[in-house]
């Protein structure tokens, strides 16, 4: 689950939330007070923060309401941000690269059967058709660049930040898509 989405409320989580909110508000108020040129700019932040902590810990129902509201806003944000980042990625990264052309060929001729090798068992440790250093590393952040380089898809490195971003923003639990299309992806 995306870490910016809060998990279902439980006592410890509510307390943690109250504390974090209080600290955040306290820091914000301090900064504002400082920007406004107040002399003891730290005080308002500390006082407000402490009051919020006391209120939050003492009124768990109110904290829970705020917790749930915050979670809902976070989900809205996540959905919107994900859609935005996806559109940016597609239009600004993929579409320009597409102008060079694609490797999907098969122009014709007498046959569409093309020769293909049987993969060597040495490649079984790799998620690609080749074996290469780093191919069997578990975390894709490390193995992905190795794959991009070795497979001649260096351009795909440009997608890596967006893969990480989308993985962080996407909070839906769906593992697959089924609709009016064959499961191509």
């Amino acid at each position: 689950m995306a870490v910016f989405i809060l998990p279902p409320p439980r006592r410890a989580r509510l307390h943690a939330f109250a504390l974090v909110q209080s600290v955040c508000v306290g820091v914000l108020v301090t900064l504002l007070a400082r920007a406004a040129g107040m002399r003891y700019y730290v005080l308002p932040g500390i006082i407000l923060g402490l009051l919020m902590i006391l209120y939050g810990m003492g009124r768990p129902q109110a904290t829970e309401r705020l917790y749930r509201l915050w979670t809902r806003w976070a989900e809205y944000y996540g959905r919107w941000a994900k859609g935005y980042v996806l559109r940016i990625c597609y239009n600004v990264v993929l579409t320009p690269v597409a102008s060079i052309g694609s490797r999907m060929t098969g122009e014709g001729g007498d046959s569409m059967w093309v020769p293909r090798p049987t993969l060597s068992p040495l490649t079984y440790g790799s998620q690609y058709d080749l074996a290469y250093p780093g191919c069997s590393l578990r975390h894709f952040v490390i193995s992905y660049p190795a794959w991009a380089y070795k497979s001649g898809n260096l351009w795909a490195l440009g997608l890596l930040p967006f893969l990480l971003l989308i993985a962080a923003l996407d909070h839906e639990k769906k593992e697959s898509y089924s609709g009016h299309i064959y499961t191509l992806f």
Binding site: V3, F4, L6, A12, R13, A16, F17, G78, A81
Partner: peptide, 17 residues
């Protein structure tokens, strides 16, 4: 940047919890 508050609160809350 707009989502920073959610990230900060989310990460800190989860961690503290």
């Amino acid at each position: 940047v707009l989502g920073l508050p959610f990230w900060i609160v989310g990460i800190c809350t989860r961690g503290l919890a």
